[in-house]
């Protein structure tokens, strides 16, 4: 139990570290968005010749926007975790001090008089820890959602490659470059999110 409390209450550092790592995801998501815009412009220029690329570029934009929103949600959640873990840390500190007082006042006439305050501190600590647990679960869920979207990005990359192979040679190189950048950004996001989950799981 003590170790469990320790793990949860030092979480404010982990949460901030995760938020910092995710700023890189935001950068990559913005890259995807930019590539999607480039693809859209290219589709408009190439006309009928590449119309099959249009739904792919739409999906790229959607994926980028979803990822950006998810990162924003995660940042909010990380801030909440940071706050709730600090509250839990304070709660843990209070319980520690009350327990020390109990040890020191074994023979004191009125030692029972602060029992209620000590119990309330313990109850508060349990509540803080439950809240922290819920926040952490939510953070895991949000990270999972990004991972799921990046798996979808894999499928989009494969489809895009196939489509790029069928377009006119004038545009093919451009499309292939866009797909490569998209793939690179999605891969980076997957790596970062995996790192974040590793950090969270270590706690």
């Amino acid at each position: 139990m003590a170790a469990d409390i320790e793990l949860r209450t030092t979480f404010f550092i982990t949460a901030v570290a995760v938020a910092a790592k995710l700023s890189l995801v935001l950068k990559e998501a913005k890259n995807i968005s930019l590539e999607a815009m480039n693809a859209k412009a290219l589709v408009a220029r190439a006309g009928e010749n590449v119309r099959t690329f249009k739904p792919i570029t739409d999906y790229m934009v959607e994926l980028a926007n979803d990822t950006i929103h998810l990162v924003e949600d995660i940042n909010r959640e990380a801030l909440m975790i940071s706050r709730s873990s600090l509250t839990a840390l304070r709660g843990k500190d209070a319980v520690y001090h009350f327990n020390r007082a109990k040890e020191k006042s074994k023979d004191a006439l009125y030692r029972e008089s602060y029992e209620e305050a000590a119990k309330l501190a313990e109850r508060d600590l349990r509540e803080f820890q439950e809240k922290l647990h819920k926040n952490t679960q939510r953070l895991h869920t949000l990270l999972e959602e990004i991972e799921t979207r990046m798996l979808a990005a894999n499928v989009v990359t494969s489809t895009s490659r196939l489509e790029a192979a069928t377009v006119s040679t004038i545009y093919r190189a451009n499309f292939e470059a866009i797909v490569a950048k998209f793939e690179h950004a999605a891969k980076n996001i997957r790596t970062i999110v995996k790192d974040c989950r590793k950090v969270l799981n270590k706690r």
Binding site: D93, H97, F98, R100, A101, K102, E103, K104, S105, A108, L109, Y110, R111, E112, S113, Y114, A117
Partner: peptide, 18 residues
Amino acid sequence: IELFASMLASVVHYLPVE
């Protein structure tokens, strides 16, 4: 804060905290 436990333990020799 480091003295709280000792202080609390000392005062309850004289009176109930309330």
